[in-house]
Design a protein around this nucleic acid. Sequence first.
DNA 1: ATATTTTCTTATCTTTTGTTAACGTTTTGA
DNA 2: TCAAAACGTTAACAAAAGATAAGAAAATAT
Lengths: 205, 205
Amino acid sequence: METSAALSIFRKYLEQFVEFNEAEWIVFTQHLSFATLKKKHYFTEPGKVCDKVGFIVTGAVRYFHMKDGEDITGYFSFENELVSSYKSYLTGLPGHTYVQALEDTKLITFTRRDMDQMLANPMLAYKMEHFGRMVAEHYICCYEDRVVSFLTQTPEQRYLNLLSTGKEILQRMPQHYIAHFLGITPVSLSRIRKRVMEPHLNPPR
Amino acid sequence: METSAALSIFRKYLEQFVEFNEAEWIVFTQHLSFATLKKKHYFTEPGKVCDKVGFIVTGAVRYFHMKDGEDITGYFSFENELVSSYKSYLTGLPGHTYVQALEDTKLITFTRRDMDQMLANPMLAYKMEHFGRMVAEHYICCYEDRVVSFLTQTPEQRYLNLLSTGKEILQRMPQHYIAHFLGITPVSLSRIRKRVMEPHLNPPR
DNA sequence: ATATTTTCTTATCTTTTGTTAACGTTTTGA
DNA sequence: TCAAAACGTTAACAAAAGATAAGAAAATAT
């Protein structure tokens, strides 16, 4: 895909947060870069400051943490979504999260430095503040749902919920990633799937 | 406490996000209200749109959900913190969360309508966009930590972590609220506390 | 094409958590 | 002040999840 098509997809995506006029768009795009991340390569790693945000044109990434030598997948991003180690990006401090390409992934990126320049540019400052606010508010809503699901739902309920809403994750991700995303082990998810798929075998109450 | 002292505390609090000059502060404060929430009364309830944000001058609140007739406490806010049912406030849709005063609580509040007016007021718009962005980014960082704790830590580890960082919650909240906040039952937390307090009784490995 | 790795399931055993109930204590409210 | 409600612990049992290992199937890489 050539860059102009990717840019117009990005512009369309951004419209849910902010609309740029032509002059603004020209300046904004001057701060963008194109990047390719080969499968299994890292967008960011623990100990490094994640100084950029990416928009996934094609491909997919997963977020994970290392715990006792095991990697725990926490989230995924797909085409037409943003990717970053948000806390690290926002605070400027080293992160704790791996963000890894699951396939060859094409990205449009901007750095924190670019964003700060735009925020300091009178022509763009107001729109970038608005953009940042809208994106952050969007993620707050996502996070709120996710935290509530951990507090109020069992792993089985979270899996059933994913069945009804998480088509893309279910279709494209190996099951052990999904298990950790749900907060359980792969073995446990396998058992839950068995329970759920064969409810007629369960004892009546 | 008289209102002017409360206002200057609020102003001090806000400085971590945005600094107002005198003219701006005067206009901003014209959009603020003072409210008292008696113990056990609700700041917001499920089914209602939470159309306001509060700043807790004195008191404390808890956030909870009803699940199968039981209430599940998910979070707390104390003096010098904001309170809202954020997703509802941000989307304008009815929420699913109870926010209840745990003590008589004094608040400074502004409504979504006030915020929208300020965002539409050229004198304040830029600062309010910035304010909104900074607050939202702050909460994203909090949420990210919380989600990661559910993915990578056992309930016992989350409790130990709370022991080292959550003085205020531990001192002021009944234990069964803390249990649900950690994602477990009160009985389970009681057992964890016993394990943790008597490690010498555990079998050596 | 085939050897290797990854993925998923299943089994076994252990640990933890949930559920329910009982009991004593503390707090609350009328 | 006193009855009622709320709170924390413990016990007993059931259910679920974690840990480990083994084996088969699928995907991947060379």
